[in-house]
Amino acid sequence: MIALCTAALAFVLRGWLAPLVALAVVGATVAGARLGRSFVPFVLATIPLLISIVLINSFLYPGAHDTVFTIGPFRATGTGLTVAGQASLRILAFALSVAVFALTTPTDDLLADLEQRGLGRRASFVVGAAIQTIPRLAARAGEIADSQRARGLDTQGSLWRRVRGIVPLAAPMISGALSEVEERTMALEARAFSAPNRRATIRPMPDTKLERALRWLLGLATVVLIAATVTGRLALP
């Protein structure tokens, strides 16, 4: 929950301070939850994006003339550098918040929690199915690509070749997704998913006072700041 709030905050806010605060919260969570090493790949994954943002904004920011330094024909502008720095921080804060969320929240916990809070079981099922489907789809896509490459599909050749390869790769993916939906529906009905009474929760969620307070605080801050942004009180650059 904390992670989701910081993600939302990072997305909405501009300037220097806000993303730094969000990063600090993320950092504290990472340290607190002892995520350490498993967190590294996520940080690395954002690097290419950050580099391109910095390059493009620094050198190509439209209408900026406050040159700081030049490299060959390219001029880095002060405005561009500032924007680049802020944008990078925001993206970093956003990406890392999402990463913390993914690493710290087992799908089961999230779903049980959502349902306990009164989110309908259909809605929480949809959330859960969406999250769980991602790794399965990835595995399926890999198998399909292997099958077609074994039949001589060249996935490395010219652009035209790769374009021609789209149908053999995409069609089994789509038909597989469709038949999975059908199977799930039948399995769910067989387990009385649509039965009208409220389900008993077998596993109650532990929830300390501190956690609750933090959550409220962040939630409130998020709502207030989003509202402020939307109503135009907090200027967007």
Partner: peptide
């Protein structure tokens, strides 16, 4: 050798036909 080249020498039939049928 590339997979596309080896495909002419060794044909591999996968377990699940639904992961290859597209036409």
């Amino acid at each position: 050798q590339r997979v596309a080249a080896l495909a002419a020498k060794v044909g591999l039939v996968f377990q699940d036909p639904d992961r290859q049928i597209f036409a």
